[in-house]
């Protein structure tokens, strides 16, 4: 048992302040356990999100002592207890209440992403893919959408105005996942350059450092995406290849306009 003060931000979009909760910590507890105990005993209206309590759903993201963490995966015994443990909501998103923020920016950016456009399946109606070819995409599909990479990214953390035209690391790994997907046929490279602000990222790797799934966001997604976008726009060899193959690169608008039409989808029997 250790004595510790939890300093938790309380308030809403109008403003607020930190409130101290002195508490006892038992062996093996994580930050979320302590927050739950405060809820149950002292402040039933203390707002926080959580679901799985096992690092799998990405709901309980917060800034613990100044850095984004999942509250359910941060053990109390890894934090200094001489000073209060400071828990604040993610800064990049508007506050709803206490530790809960409005993360709808991320859902909006997901909505603006041109969806998966698969090629035709094989003669038996199924697809063949090799393990080595799916592994790149699988790394990005480990993402639990905690949005901590979005929170730490200075492009939107310090510049609200960039949110209009910057998809952010969470979505960049989704673009890279589709870019490397063995079955996808859409070409979103111009869209990434023109409307999703890929160029704003100056590869400081903050996103990679906070990723609870240890996805190499910068090295395996953002940098390769930047290379592919540059190739698409300026590489003379690629340009020549397109000429010879008479294949035109999709413009941002063409990529964006690819939508799934529910009526034309082959009804699955």
């Amino acid at each position: 048992m250790a004595e510790v003060v939890m300093r938790i931000w309380r308030g809403d979009s109008e403003g607020g302040e930190f409130q101290d909760f002195p508490t006892q910590v038992s062996e093996g507890e994580v930050v979320l356990d302590v927050v739950h105990r405060i809820q149950a005993e002292d402040a039933p209206d203390l707002a926080c999100r959580w679901n799985c309590k096992a690092g799998k759903c990405g709901s309980c993201s917060a800034e613990i002592n100044g850095l984004p963490h999942l509250m359910c995966m941060t053990r109390m015994d890894t934090l200094p207890t001489e000073e209060p443990v400071v828990i604040a909501p993610m800064k990049t998103f508007p506050i709803i209440r206490d530790l809960v923020t409005d993360v709808s920016f991320n859902y909006e950016m997901a909505r603006r992403l041109p969806p998966f456009a698969p090629k035709e399946p094989g003669p038996d109606g199924t697809y063949r893919m090799q393990q080595i070819d799916v592994e790149r995409g699988q790394e990005f599909r480990k993402c639990i959408e905690c949005f901590m990479c979005q929170d730490i990214c200075h492009v939107i953390r310090d510049h609200e105005e960039n949110k209009e035209h910057y998809a952010g690391p969470r979505l960049f790994i989704r673009y890279m996942e589709l870019e490397s997907h063995p079955l996808d046929t859409n070409d979103r490279r111009e869209l990434l350059r023109e409307e999703m602000g890929l160029g704003y990222c100056n590869i400081t790797k903050c996103c990679t450092e906070v990723c609870p799934e240890h996805i190499k966001i910068t090295d395996n997604a953002i940098i390769p995406l930047k290379e592919r976008v540059v190739d698409a726009s300026y590489d003379p060899v690629a340009w020549l290849g397109r000429k010879i193959l008479r294949r035109t690169k999709k413009t941002a608008t063409e990529a964006a306009n690819y939508r799934t039409d529910p009526k034309t989808v082959k009804a699955s029997q």
Partner: peptide, 23 residues
């Protein structure tokens, strides 16, 4: 089986067998 194959057509990436089918 059809429901699993359908997920692939919607972008799921399952682990594979050596001959490229779903493991």
């Amino acid at each position: 089986p059809d429901r699993i194959h359908e997920l692939e057509a919607w972008g799921a990436l399952f682990d594979r067998t050596n001959d490229g089918r779903i493991h």
